[in-house]
Amino acid sequence: MAELSFREAIAAGIAQEMARDPLVYFIGEDIGAAGGVFKATVGLFEQFGPDRVRDTPISEQAIIGAAMGAAMTGLRPIAEIMFSDFLATCWDMVANQVAKTRYMTDGQVSLPLVIRTANGGGTRFGAQHSQSLENWGMAVPGLKVVAPSNPADAKGLLAAAIRDPDPVLFFEQKSLYGVKGEVPDGEHVDRLGSARVLRDGKDCTIVALAAMVPRSLDAAERLAAMDIEATVVDVRSLVPLDTRTILSAVTKTGRLFTVEENPRLCGWGAEIASIAADECFDDLDGPIVRITTPHVPLPAADVLEDAAMPSVERIVETVKRAMR
């Protein structure tokens, strides 16, 4: 085990796969000699050269389009969209082209490609550089959606995404880039579509994603001091979704809380709540509660952003009140 930051783990995951498979190519804005604006791709340009690690113009449609055309003709490209907010400038490519082409051609075309993107708030960048929009991808059939919460998962899930035969939207929560954690030595490949139980508790289940995972774990510790024992599940992958792990935790504890960074309406937690209500209604001892950012564009000022996003305190208070 080595201790790596989240950003180092991303670069290590890409390097591992590029060294293994000569068909893996990597394109994006400022990813080459500059090492990425979040320094998550440092060293790749030097290791693999300008042919395999290529800087692009500020042309998000061309970036995703090029990755798609390359994927359908034999490469396994990784494309970086600097901020997930910029996906809006190329959403046609993502939602209409990349997502649908295998289906519309009834499998004539395969699209093994990864779209990596820095996602989410906590950095005071304001509403156009802070959105948490995994649920956009989740709403489109044909896209896999992954969002790791720690360095080990960042490397392992990214490697799995690169080897996957389908398009994967890979969300890197930007406030996690500096977080350090143990990452297994040697080749590390995880599995898409597997949630992970990070803490066992008999009283309730808290389901979280990406940056909301460490906050939920902190909240669970504080709740334990109040005699509320929470199970914490890291969803890790929204599509495919490991409903088995999630529903099994809900069944055991009888209560379900989701902690979502996205604004309220149509967040991923709503889908999980709906599945739980459908499939384990009889095991529930109380209402399902969603803890989300309010339905507003994320404000920039530190006090506003902190108050808008689900905080450890808000998770603790909400769970405590609901469990009373």
């Binding site: 389009g65 798609m68 055309g69």
Partner: peptide, 16 residues
């Protein structure tokens, strides 16, 4: 939409 995609197929042909 297909202009960038065609460019991508050409990129793939170029590097292969």
């Amino acid at each position: 939409a297909h202009l960038p995609i065609a460019a991508g197929a050409a990129w793939s042909a170029q590097v292969r």
